[in-house]
Design a protein around this nucleic acid. Structure first.
Length: 280
DNA sequence: GGGTACCTGAAA
DNA sequence: TTTCAGGTACCC
């Protein structure tokens, strides 16, 4: 589930649950986190929980005099989930628990069936990886987007998945953003006009912001005792809607494959502009 | 650039 | 049984 809106939701929900708590111990199953790093985490207080790209960052204070602050970075990849359990609380017998972070007054379960997810410890001043621009950051503007698109000949949809350009966009929101921007996913990323870049900028912001407001597209709770999916799923315009009528024009939504991954779009709404073209 | 691999489970 | 899945590292 985790693209930017889902990870943002997780971080926002975790922040008030974890802030101020002391991390007592981390138990792992498998090679998720080195013994030395697990030891390093003990006894530290949580300063905050934020999103870094698609990752959840748990900032930890120093462990004593002369020690530096650090942070735990969790990447959920495809199937990772973070579930908070208060004192004595249980959730049946959860399968695929890869790590348990034990705090005063509760524990955080890292559940990940496919085991693609990662957990690592780094120093608080480590540079944020992959160097892409966060599209929800105020420094992201249409000229910045224009610079990132540069002269790229890559298709727009594969381009949107690149974490060294924009952070946090994945396969669902890439299709949704291009539908909102009325841009063909196969267009070369570097071929957009200034007006099209403005449209794309607006779509990136509005689609992600709306998905965040609806707590993402699908995922089970945590913090909340009931399993509750994100509310954005029913608002998807094209993703997962192959053959269904486009919400804009009614024509059936197409699915194509780009770089071995599904792309959904509407040929009419995202086709070449007709205005200004010669008519036969 | 694009294809494949990583791993498991759900759905076709 | 086969295919597909919200991510990304690594191969040519």
């Amino acid at each position: 589930m985790p693209e930017l809106p889902e990870v943002e939701t997780v971080a926002r929900q975790l922040a008030p649950l974890l802030a101020g708590r002391v991390l007592r111990r981390i138990d792992v199953r498998g090679p998720l986190l080195e013994v030395a790093d697990r030891h390093l985490a003990r006894g530290r207080r949580v300063l905050g929980v934020t999103r870094l790209g698609k990752q959840v960052a748990i900032a930890l204070g120093p462990a004593g005099r002369g020690t530096a602050a650090c942070r735990l970075i969790c990447h959920l990849r495809m199937t990772g989930r973070l579930i908070w359990l208060g004192p004595g609380e249980t959730r049946g017998n959860p399968r695929h628990v890869r790590a348990t972070l034990r705090f005063d007054g509760g524990r955080l379960l890292f559940i990940d069936p496919r085991r693609f997810g990662t957990l690592r410890m780094e120093s608080a001043d480590a540079p944020v990886g992959n160097s892409g621009t966060d599209p929800m950051d105020g420094r992201f503007t249409p000229p910045v987007l224009a610079g990132l698109l540069g002269g790229s000949r890559q298709g727009l949809k594969p381009w949107l998945l690149r974490q060294d350009r924009l952070l946090g966009i994945g396969n669902i929101y890439a299709s949704e953003i291009l539908f909102a921007a009325r841009l063909d996913p196969r267009r070369a990323a570097g071929s957009l006009s200034r007006g099209e870049i403005r449209r794309m900028f607006g779509a990136v912001r509005s689609v992600l912001a709306r998905a965040i407001r609806h707590c993402g597209t699908t995922f089970s709770d945590f913090g909340d005792t009931r399993g509750r999916p994100g509310g954005f799923g029913r608002l998807l315009a094209v993703y997962g809607r192959e053959g269904l009528p486009c919400r804009g024009c009614g024509r059936s939504v197409r699915r194509i494959v780009q770089q071995s991954r599904s792309t959904f779009y509407c040929e009419r709404c995202q086709g070449p502009r007709r205005a200004g073209m010669f008519v036969a």
